[in-house]
Design a protein around this nucleic acid. Structure first.
Lengths: 351, 351
DNA sequence: CTGAAAGCGCTTACAG
DNA sequence: CTGAAAGCGCTTACAG
């Protein structure tokens, strides 16, 4: 170590000062510390990460699992996670779990977790969509320092979730403020937590606004024979039941006289907008439409889509903060283990 | 090393067999190799990467530079690069160079290159958009094993580029096949290579189809006082000159009687579609519209947008292949250093 | 053909 | 308070 020579001290002393070895009790006088620090700066000294790891220091490396990094929804989270990792002076490995192109998308989840373990990451950020089946319990076992985006429903697991009920509440409140009184909600599943949350938020805000809950304004796609997304296809969220927009128009707008529709996500909202125009219904004049996700497509629908942004930067901030706490073995209380991120309404012209 | 014990050989012999140390001349008999391999499998032996690196073996790690991983355009490339890296048994670090949120986006390019160097990556994949100013020459100097997406215009640099002239040729040929005869082209810059390529492909295919080149059908935004993208704003490609779609309609469709418009990218195409509808012009009946990029928004425009897909999976395959050649010190001839990827026409309803 | 030793650059005990 | 030594798990020379 040239730094030691330049500063006129032994390698060990220099090491203890520069790399904070031996805990915090640095073993050198003020002046020596100064000399060493200066020498290091002068020589642009960077400790060898491989050697540090070999001696058991942490890698300052996170692993990020994502079904497909190309998914425009996750991409924003990937970016924000890197931003946060950089703040903690860590780097991030990225790993798609759906590796193949072509028709088949075998899930390489377990294999990629092993790769991360082999590389010696300090912890794992798992942003694989909830609807992909994979061994999340096994992941936690292999790497206890794991934080999920979306609740994996595993006792003790740390996760960050968007406040989906809050998203619907904000949508309802906004629409009421715009004078809408017959606000409809479309969800996909009768049983999945994500959808139950939506209904919960919907009812809560209607009540808060003094509006009645009208069952005819609630459309659950699964109840009319349409299946929610599962693991079978690719990762795209485009595989909507093609008939759903028409059903929304028939049941909610024509039959139930809805003057606003809160869609389960932006994709449905975008399809609905197109269908509404084809039917000669004006948005937002005849009916207002609100989405969820704030997808890149929203500025290009006609009219541009009012939606709710899941605030990925806040999610990322919380995920990395939690991960660092896990890495440093700080205990997380039950309530700290699930962080709810408040989404934000983004108003455009559709509502 | 327990494997050696189980197989009844010394640590070194086991090492030479398992990790391919000492070049290829493994120093053990058939039977011994068998025993060692079996023992390793049984104990699920994985060599310690940190130790290997400390002894100078490669890290099996790529660094990926991207302006913003959240950019839906780059996200697909990120995904495909990971797929290819995995095929080469490498992992990929990701680093945004535009780190901040808020208004300011200071470019951390150099810092992130240093981080990669410090981590000891084998090579770097640089997918930072061409219009971002950053020290690409310095990158190559710091890490000669670098492959770019988009041509950095540095002598000797290895890069993969989409065949943008070919993309325009395919668009023109397709439109001619659909009976269009007055095909217009919109590009942004008068001088940037990317735009010159477009014009080149446009003229070449018109000639090939026996159609005349009509200068009134070519609109260069810069020539009418609109600036192409630069590094000043965020990374979004949404910052179009808002008037451009109207100018396209006035000059190309009304004045020059174009029956088809090839747009510089999907964003312009999407804005144009909306404007055309507002003006009561039918697409594709009155005028056909073709984009470029195959962005996720294209299925949601009305009508869905015919476009050209840059084939990121092929680009990724070539980038990683080239990077591996650089890492293994294989010489790349001048012509091998620039790989052109043939894009693919994706037909939807707009043309 | 096989084994013992040195060393990569650190950290962490232990000795002066 | 400071220095010399051992060792993390490998690879690579060198010796038997």
């Amino acid at each position: 170590m040239d730094v030691a020579k330049l500063a006129g001290v032994s390698r060990q002393v220099a090491g203890s000062v520069l790399n904070g070895a031996m805990g915090n009790n640095s073993r050198a006088s003020e002046a020596t510390v100064q000399r060493i620090t200066q020498a290091a700066e002068q020589l642009n000294y960077k400790p060898n990460l491989a050697a540090m790891r070999l001696r058991g220091r942490r890698a300052h490396l996170y692993g990020l699992l994502v079904a497909s990094a190309g998914d425009p929804l996750r991409a924003m989270l990937v970016q924000q996670l890197d931003v946060e990792a950089a703040k903690h002076e860590c780097q991030m490995l990225i790993a798609n779990t759906l590796l193949e192109e072509g028709k088949a998308y075998p899930n390489r989840f377990d294999g990629r977790v092993e790769e991360f373990a082999h590389r010696g990451v300090d912890g794992i950020l798992c942003a694989v969509h909830a609807w992909h089946r994979c061994d999340r319990a096994g992941l936690i076992k292999a790497q206890p320092n794991t934080v999920f985006y979306d609740d994996p429903n595993i006792p003790g697991a740390a996760c960050v979730v968007p406040d989906i009920a809050g998203a619907v509440r904000k949508s309802v409140a906004y629409l009421v403020g715009k004078g809408r009184r017959r606000i409809a909600l479309v969800t996909m599943s009768r049983t999945l937590p994500w959808h139950l949350e939506r209904v919960k938020g919907y009812k809560a805000e209607l009540a808060a606004q003094g509006l009645p809950f009208d069952r005819s304004l609630l459309l659950v796609a699964e109840e009319i024979g349409m299946q929610p997304l599962d693991d079978s296809g690719s990762d795209t969220s485009l595989d909507y039941p093609a008939e759903l927009p028409q059903v929304v128009i028939d049941r909610l707008i024509v039959d139930a006289k809805a003057d606003a529709v809160i869609c389960h996500d932006d994709f449905l909202a975008a399809f609905l907008l197109r269908r509404l125009r084809a039917k000669g219904l004006a948005v937002p004049k005849d009916v207002a439409v609100v989405g969820y996700l704030d997808h890149a497509l929203d500025s290009f629908t006609d009219p541009p889509l009012t939606t709710v942004n899941p605030q990925y930067h806040l999610a990322a901030e919380n995920m990395v903060r939690m991960l660092e706490r896990l890495i440093q073995n700080e205990p997380l209380s039950r309530s700290e283990r699930t962080v709810r991120v408040e989404p934000k309404l983004v108003t455009r012209e559709s509502a």
